[in-house]
Design a binder for these strands. Sequence first.
RNA 1: GGGGAUGUGGCGGAACUGGCAGACGCGAAGGUCUCAAAAACCUUUGGGAUAACCUCCCGUGUGGGUUCGAUUCCCACCAUCCCCACCA
Length: 864
Amino acid sequence: MKEKYFPQELEEKWQRRWAEEKTFEVTEDREREKFYCLEMLAYTSGRAHIGHVSNFSIGDALAWYKRMRGFNVLHPFGWDAFGQPAETAAIKDGTDPEKFTRDAIAYMKWQFQRMGLSYDWSREVATCDPEYYKWNQWFFIQMWRRGMLYRKLAPVNWCPKENISLSNEQASGGVCWRCDTPVIQKQLMQWFARITDYADQLLDDLDKLEGKWPDRVVSQQRNWIGRSLGAEVRFEVADTIDTITVFTTRIDTIFGANAIILAPEHPLLAKIVEGKPQREEVLAFAERLRKEQRNARAEELEKEGINTGGWAVNPFNRERLPIWIANFVLIDYGTGALMSVPAGDQRDFEFSRKYNLPFRQIKLTEDGREIPAEELEVPNEDWIVTVNSGRWSGLASKEANRLMTEYAEAEGFGRATTTYKLRDWGISRQRYWGTPIPMIHCDTCGIVPVPESELPVVLPKGVNLKVEGGSPLDHVPEFVNVTCPNCGGAARRDTDTMDTFVDSNWYYFRYCDPHNDEQPFDPDKIHYWLPVNQYIGGIEHAVLHLIYTRYWTKMMRDIGLVRFDEPVERLLSQGMVCKETFYCPNHEWLFPEQVTDGNRCSICESAVIIGRSEKMSKSRKNAVDPIEMINIHGADSIRLFVLFAGPPEQDKEWSDTGFNGAAKYLQRVWRIAYKWQSRVAGAEVAEPAEMSDYQRRMRRRTHQIVRSITENFEERLHLNTCISSLMELTNEIYLFDQAVDKNGEPTSADVFVAREAIEALIRMIAPFTPHIAEELWESYGHSESLARSRWPEYSDELARDEEIEVAVQVNGKLRSRLFVSPDVSREELERAALADEKVQAAAAGRDVAKVIVVPQKLVNVVVK
RNA sequence: GGGGAUGUGGCGGAACUGGCAGACGCGAAGGUCUCAAAAACCUUUGGGAUAACCUCCCGUGUGGGUUCGAUUCCCACCAUCCCCACCA
């Protein structure tokens, strides 16, 4: 064993040995309990960042722990390799997206391997491999056959900067999720997956995930699916045979309606204004609203509308209501039409004020008064007793809602219904670098799937990516022109590719059987490994990937491949790694070395704004390169630091000195292990019958700390406090060592106690810093990898304190302490506390009203 | 507007089910070793009162409440962050 700790040297040694000995490769072992530990696959951006270090360190710690607890641990890794950035980079450099991606994978894999992560690399998957995306195509065909996919001409969200279509999720807020460019709309024939058929299941099954998934993810998904229960009500358009259906959650307020308002795109608009004098004006207005609505965010858009001149008839009271159009009515939510009730809804209230539409009060205040509508200052959304509503007056809102829906159903002009915010998932992309859609368009036979025996439809190479509009594959005749599998006539391939979120839907199923060329996976294998026991990834996937993959699992269940409903048991959304930024008004973000001591820009001398800590990124110039850090103190130190910086789910602040501290700690571990190595390794010592104080203390602390770290891994996974406990154990070993030195030569009892403590430390540090742990373990005479060793056991008996400190309070204020045996009775504690001098002084002769005793912790004497 | 979180020393954080606030680490100060520096080791380190020890007072964003006892539970407010958003 070397006297000094040289991290890079021994890290290389162990990384090589793990690879050679296939230490982390696993197979289905039905005798052992499995544990599937999964980190989100890496996007092939080209470079590892600290976020990866943080994500993978958490997963790796858990994988190590479970392995040492005897589980058969599946811990695989792969690449999210299709997608726009590779294509953009290729266009820029005139290279090939495949080359860009393969290079990125090679480099990032080298980076990740230098972190020494315990992956079973034999299961590595890259989504751009034809052996992988073949099965995307296969799924596509199965879904199409079952009517789970359809095609429609749809306005797609289109990012004009990247020339790519986006799903609703990717275009949320009206901007591109990747580059923040405002999204425009384009009409294109698109493939859609009927995810809305699963809306109820996706929502209801969230209940099963509650407590095991972070609250914010569950609630974000609930909001995203956005189920509202309400009613559809059909209004006749006066003097015509047409009707307008509105969706409302508050049918009980219908007597307060003062208008029907349509989205500018509403299909009936043209007919309503036909032959009316204001026709031109209204249609022009609608056209303008359509354009503006698309380009502005909600809060920037002032409410605007126009009276179409048409009239609708309220089916409850036969009142005639003017038909308006307005920019706040959305064509793709509900029915694209609503009834305006100013007394009961903020938006209708504002709109009616602006355009002087009449108000009618339909609810009483909480104390039973009726405020005249014209005196309302704000709408009465929460008032619950209905008035001025015909035979429903006097009912509670809920009751009115139910009875009025029943009435509408009975009279045939309405029905109870459910509306969702969730839209069907548009999965076509007019791009090159993705899975080709395996469909053929034949003039005679229509849409025909590629025969399964011909899969995969391989993405052609050497394609010109710089095409204006449409997909690059449109311009590859040898790809496009095929014969129809059905009639043998001339036909065209579909030239769109799939959204990359299709790729990430099921990659972790593929890990269970990565080389299967008969089927996407062997059901026996996935039912051994899945569901994933612990999934770890970034919060940014709360509604994208994590809804799609839940949907895909249910789809696979419905086509008979899978027997469970939810793919992921526990989810952990890890925090970001942040660092402070420096911003110069003239030169934007600066590197720390560009800032002078007086906080001025070294280029222009302007005062630098020291920004709050932000997520590391290249553009903010606050990124830290993991490889540089590994070169300084080694992979173990960087892993230890990111885990120690805070609880896994919380954001962390990068600190160079903190990183240094992690390295210093490992030096300290090495030093004490080195000092005891020659005494302990190979020594045959029996458990001593008699021990002195310092020996008993060492054993007690060892068992206490093993217990606390074990419990933490099992329950809370607060890895930062596990590391504090390891540091405490280390400090304890140093104290013990000093006690031994004081006595001269170590006795056999000393060796026994030291070995127990140091070997527990080495084993428990393995999940955090596996390289140094393996090296120390080997030098302590163990020939097999720590991955095959067992997690240390603890004994409650040995962890028991001999004497505990009990706090004594008088009226809730700490006044004294008692040192007692842990099994002292309540009565004795009470007696000792009352007898205590300081307690008597604090009580100052007042009467003792009562005494509260919390065993092992505290006594509170209450005096009056 | 809706939803979710967070707020504790100079800093990162700890305190698990209401029971001694500040574990562990960083930083800082002083010391030992050294020609010197680094490393390592030792001591101190929430604020205040006191020359100092003992001791006492204050202290977990703010204001209330519940309780023998609140960082923890409840109500209101303030601040910050994240997600969604004219969703009828």
